[in-house]
């Protein structure tokens, strides 16, 4: 794992939002690497900073947001130092993004074929015929009959529209595709279909995936490695097999134990009591302290740093849990 080629490397990323009451410490000291061809998940509950990380990578943060520190390296180059022109090529050609609401952002009065061709022609000087051929291929790729190239978005189901958006994201053969809750608005049968399609395309085309969702069971089924954020910080990064054994961070453990399962004995589950601290005036010590069942006095000293445990596993907790602890 460690000696595989690294596509994306985020180091000590800090992002702040300016709000009325002060600065929101939305992302603090977040670091992770994504390898070539890896299916990398970013999980955590709402407001933990997942989307902010994704938008930082794409350099799509809006007005109130500011990157307050850290670096983002893409294939060895610093994304934060890109010129406008470099950014234009970077987005779509090197890295693309699919959002939850993307299927509703297709232009309703333009056929899906034209929208695909526009995406291609904006970046590549091709004759229209060739672009159209590419658009057909892309539709085939996401399992939509190319004969539907003249269809308007409203003539397609939600799942098909979302697959058109995925086709668009793949149009320029990027090295990294970021999915931010791409299936949250869809039914599970449709979601299953789309996820399988993404996995298959990834295998065939070899891109890397950064997949964001709060649906941990879904993520455990499809990712190679998963990063779990809490209150703007990285709690744990682990290969899926390690998480299936329980995870080392008390927050990970709590999350894993909060999902009802379809198999095994029915047992009583417990949520995680309390709520996420205010990110404008965060506490001094570990941000999970208030809700943590394993806290000790030293947790209040400072937020624990992410510690490398080898084998692609790292964790930020002073009292990590071993596999046996239930």
């Amino acid at each position: 794992m460690e000696n595989r080629e690294i596509v994306l490397s985020v180091k000590d990323l800090n992002v702040r939002y300016t709000a009325d009451r002060g600065e929101v410490q939305a992302v603090t000291n977040v670091s992770f690497d994504i390898h070539k061809g890896e299916f990398f998940g970013l999980a955590g509950e709402s407001g933990c900073g997942k989307s902010t990380v994704a938008f930082s990578i794409m350099q799509l943060l809006k007005g109130a947001a500011r990157i307050a520190g850290g670096s983002i390296q893409f294939n060895g180059r610093n994304v934060l130092a890109f010129t406008k022109e470099e950014l234009r090529t970077f987005r779509w050609e090197k890295s693309s993004m699919v959002l939850q609401s993307a299927m509703n952002n297709l232009n309703p009065v333009v056929t899906i074929g034209s929208q695909l061709m526009d995406a291609i022609l904006a970046h590549e000087a091709l004759p229209r015929r060739a672009a159209q051929e590419r658009a057909r291929e892309l539709l085939k790729l996401v399992n939509i009959d190319p004969a539907r190239i003249k269809a308007y978005p409203h003539e397609l189901s939600g799942g098909m529209r979302q697959r058109v958006v995925i086709a668009m994201a793949l149009a320029l053969r990027p090295d990294l595709v970021i999915f931010d809750e791409p299936t949250t608005a869809l039914d599970v049968v449709v979601q299953y279909n789309i996820i399988r399609r993404i996995q298959e395309l990834k295998r065939r085309m070899g891109f890397s995936v950064l997949f964001i969702t709060h649906d941990l069971p879904l993520m455990l089924e499809m990712c190679d490695r998963i990063a779990i954020m809490y209150a703007g910080r990285m709690a744990e990064i682990a290969p899926v097999e390690r998480l299936l054994e329980g995870g080392a961070h008390p927050y990970t453990r709590g999350l894993l134990q909060a999902f009802p399962s379809l198999v095994g004995p029915r047992k009583e589950l417990r949520g995680i009591p309390g709520s996420v601290p205010d990110l404008i005036t965060p506490p001094a010590g570990c941000l999970f302290y208030e809700r943590c069942a394993h806290r000790q006095e030293d947790c209040l000293l400072a937020p624990p740093a992410l510690e490398d445990l080898g084998g692609g596993h790292s964790c930020a907790c002073r009292h990590m849990l071993s596999k046996e602890v239930g």
């Binding site: 399992n143 189901s157 799942g159 098909m160 599970v188 049968v189 449709v190 979601q191 299953y192 279909n193 399988r196 649906d215 069971p217 879904l218 455990l220 089924e221 899926v240 299936l244 399962s261 379809l262 198999v263 095994g264």
Partner: peptide, 21 residues
């Protein structure tokens, strides 16, 4: 179909289906 489309990491056999949607 519904059951096999529901993510369940602890399920023994992994399903490989492509259902119509």
């Amino acid at each position: 179909l519904l059951l096999s489309s529901t993510p369940e990491p602890f399920r023994e056999e992994k399903l490989e289906i492509h259902a119509a949607e």
